[in-house]
Design a protein around this nucleic acid. Structure first.
Lengths: 243, 243
DNA sequence: TGCGCCTTTTAACATTTATCAAGAACATGG
DNA sequence: CCATGTTCTTGATAAATGTTAAAAGGCGCA
């Protein structure tokens, strides 16, 4: 198949030209999936991984009882959604679209071949799953150590950073098509409380949300409230202050 | 250097004989580190990874304010503590001993050579960091979706499972040298509340703790209260019911 | 042995967050 | 355009959890 012409953004943009080109060569197809669709289910065998090209996706621990599943990750364009299923061939959680999404498909067999031929590219892919891990740790920190308002501020700050790196946030404005219920699942709080905290942040002059668009009025203040440190994602040397 | 003679247990026991032997060949030394020692610090460059041979270690997001750091992982013998620092050469969190520990040291340069020579062994190592990720997700779920009692039960259930797989829990008895303060940092609750919940679990006939030893009286009940599903760690096909 | 420090335990109280309920706003499909 | 369902918003109330404080237990060390 001819190499698809995909934008290289966000996390993918951190790959070298050579790695990116080689990885693209293993792409079998690009698919579109409508919003709110379950894409992969926990424990079902997987033989491909997905790169999110456009849209927003979520990962959930289904939860032993239906009324309280937990969102464990959100993926933005440029992220590999489930590259961590490559080494083991399975997932421990569900994967769904939030938005309408465009996804690039990478068969594990092709990835395996690539890793054998170019081990350094394998390590580059590995490091993308490692970054995913760092984000998980930050989610643990957020939910475990911060009170509601900090949690919300921290969450919004993370989204702003990741979407900005993906070229999808400008001047503190970006689309985030999550319901307050979704945010509740992500931050471990009730939807009602999300609503109240969002109001407080708005009245604080921090940021506001309107029909899926977030506008940050005072990024520094948001970071302070959320005890947000952008370096968790990038490492100190890589982090460039400002927008 | 001659290949050190280390037990192969827990997560390491899931490696093939060949992978394990090759990996051992890259071990440069075995070191002992006393309890409650900071071993690696966030953002400092790392050129080696550690395999925990004996003892208990913890990983923390230091937390922007000192009074509320969050524990994001606990390592038991057989775990690679910071293998995820190999692809990137840095960590986004601190690493400390809880107990006196014995650790096997693996220089990144030697690991890199190994990955180049035997890419499949590289994938096996990669899959160990992927399992680490799955545990992170489970911690997110625990802290985000479960109430205090469930959180505690779920946490104890995870420790029982992982220590049992490492050959360190028998008949529901195992050593867990954490203070209630530590458990609070791990579960995102105050030490005082940990104490209360521990009492409730004891009075429920579920499990009890005495001077660092946990005894589980009713594992099924503990799993039910904690909504614990052992498959999160192992996958369905690998999970063997019972002890 | 006795002192000092850390951990555990319990109680009282304050605060945060969840739950329930109801109406308003908003979107979707006929 | 209406009808229906979802999401947002707010208030009242309940429940869960945090905080503070104080006493008891354990442990190492002089």
């Amino acid at each position: 198949m001819t190499r698809p012409d995909l934008d290289r953004r966000g996390m993918s943009a951190r790959l070298s030209d050579r790695d990116w080109a080689s990885i693209l060569d293993t792409c079998s197809e690009v698919v579109e999936i409508p919003a709110r669709t379950l894409v992969s289910r926990r424990d079902e065998p997987l033989d491909r991984s997905l790169l999110l090209v456009e849209g927003l996706m979520s990962r959930h621990v289904p939860g032993p009882y239906r009324d309280r599943r937990e969102m464990v990750a959100l993926e933005v364009p440029g992220d590999f959604v489930d590259l961590h299923s490559f080494p083991t061939g399975r997932l421990d959680h569900d994967v769904s679209t939030v938005d309408d999404c465009r996804l690039a498909v990478f068969p594990h067999s092709a990835l395996r071949k690539l890793v054998h031929i170019q081990p350094e590219t394998g390590i580059a892919l590995w490091s993308m799953t490692v970054t995913d891990s760092a984000i998980h740790r930050y989610w643990s920190f957020r939910v475990g150590a911060l009170p509601a308002m900090g949690r919300m501020a921290n969450f919004i700050a993370e989204m702003e950073l990741r979407l900005r790196l993906a070229g999808l946030a400008h001047d503190g404005r970006f689309s985030l098509p999550l319901t307050q219920s979704d945010m509740g699942e992500a931050c471990g709080m009730s939807a009602v409380h999300i609503n109240r905290v969002l109001r407080d942040l708005r009245e604080d002059g921090c940021c506001s949300i309107q029909s899926g668009w977030i506008e940050i009025h005072d990024l520094e203040r948001l970071h302070r409230i959320g005890h947000f440190e952008p370096t968790f994602l990038l490492g100190e040397q890589d982090y460039i202050v400002g927008r």
